[in-house]
């Protein structure tokens, strides 16, 4: 992971393209050119753009369309039944909260499982008693109704026991909550700004900042009647043009704010979800222990394209990160000087 080209994982986007995007969109405060502005904000414009592309590729488009119909029918036929029977059929199938790659995500999942098993235990007792009663105390079995309608002892017991269980549940999570709030001593701070409908990442004190928008493949396939089967798009709706890159085993502090409406930055493998609120600064943190690519989505309804602003966090080795950062800075510097020339 550490060795070799640190950019090999950036989804095959040529470096030139990435730099151009950085150039155009680097300054959130700058008045952007119309094209840039539309690209991020006006779905109609995107539709038009993609419409041109569609014409160019009409031949493949038709085949893809038929294919998607077939796939859909197959899906309807096989979908529910097969999958109900075979829970492990698909490797993608997640039934549970991911364990994640941070100490706190693992702890969160532990707590989740502990409460879950408590609930199962209570359910077994309560449902068991009810089912027993339903089968044994039925009129058709000749049951004669008892007359009791009060029992102080029982009522005290089933008030007291839940209180104890709840305290047992809550105490470990209180400890975890304290850790979650501890944003001290970060190795890296990233300011994350939510936009309708993309994210902006700015590396604090590093002069590296860029937008992160839905990847083009998903962008093309997401439209109604696009003719592209989402199954054929890798990481459909969960891929971006430019991910957030952070070093492994480093404490990354995330400062969150928003440009327009509320957003929420959620990556479940990092056990992070925090709202981005215009005019306010929220903070949270994570320390990823395993290099890899982690995906998430905006979790707070933010308008039309709320479902189309994914988050991709790429955790790389420190060396790879440093190299990446240096490269990004180079890109930014050249933009900044170009900016100076324009004035």
């Amino acid at each position: 992971m550490q060795a070799g080209d640190p950019f090999s994982k950036l989804r095959g986007v040529p470096i030139g393209v990435r730099q151009r995007r950085t150039q155009a969109l680097n300054f959130p405060g700058k008045r952007l050119s119309d094209d840039d502005w539309h690209d991020g904000n006006c779905a109609n414009y995107i539709l038009r753009l993609d419409g041109h592309k569609k014409e160019n590729a009409s031949a493949q488009w038709h085949t893809a369309d038929c294919l998607s119909e077939k796939l859909m029918i197959r899906k309807i036929l096989t979908g529910a039944l097969t999958l109900l029977a075979a829970g492990t059929a698909s490797a993608d199938w997640e039934l549970n909260m991911p364990r994640g790659v941070t100490e706190l995500s693992a702890a969160t999942q532990d707590i989740h499982m502990v409460i879950f098993w408590w609930c199962v235990a209570i359910a077994v007792v309560v449902f068991g008693a009810m089912i027993y009663s339903i089968f044994m105390h039925r009129k058709s079995k000749g049951a004669v109704p008892a007359k009791f309608s009060h029992n102080m002892a029982a009522e005290v017991i089933w008030t007291a026991i839940p209180v104890v269980i709840l305290i047992v549940m809550a105490v470990p999570s209180a400890e975890l909550m304290i850790k979650l709030e501890d944003t001290r001593d970060p190795d890296l701070t990233v300011v994350v700004t939510g936009y309708q409908w993309k994210w902006h990442y700015s590396y604090q004190g590093e002069d590296v900042a860029f937008y992160s928008t839905l990847a083009r493949a998903s962008q093309a396939a997401r439209r109604r009647d696009s003719g592209i089967d989402p199954e054929t798009v890798e990481n459909y709706l969960l891929d971006v043009d430019k991910p957030l890159v952070v070093p492994v085993d480093a404490k990354v502090r995330i400062l969150l704010t928003s440009n327009d409406v509320l957003h929420s930055w959620w990556v479940s493998d990092l056990a992070i979800k925090k709202d981005a609120i215009p005019g306010f600064m929220n903070e949270t943190w994570f320390k990823a222990e395993v290099p890899g690519i982690y995906r998430g989505q905006c979790a707070e309804l933010c308008g039309m394209d709320h479902g189309y602003m994914p988050i991709v966090v790429e955790v790389v080795g420190q060396e790879a990160f440093d190299a990446w950062l240096l490269n990004e800075k180079g890109a930014v510097t050249s933009v900044a000087s170009a900016e100076g020339d324009l004035r």
């Binding site: 959130p28 405060g29 700058k30 008045r31 700004t193 604090q204 400062l255 440009n259 215009p278």
Partner: peptide, 21 residues
Amino acid sequence: LEFVTTVNQYAPWEFRPAVEK
């Protein structure tokens, strides 16, 4: 002490701290 600046709704300003930290 760190400074962060944001411009809401793409408003037509360039807005930055003189020093970031």
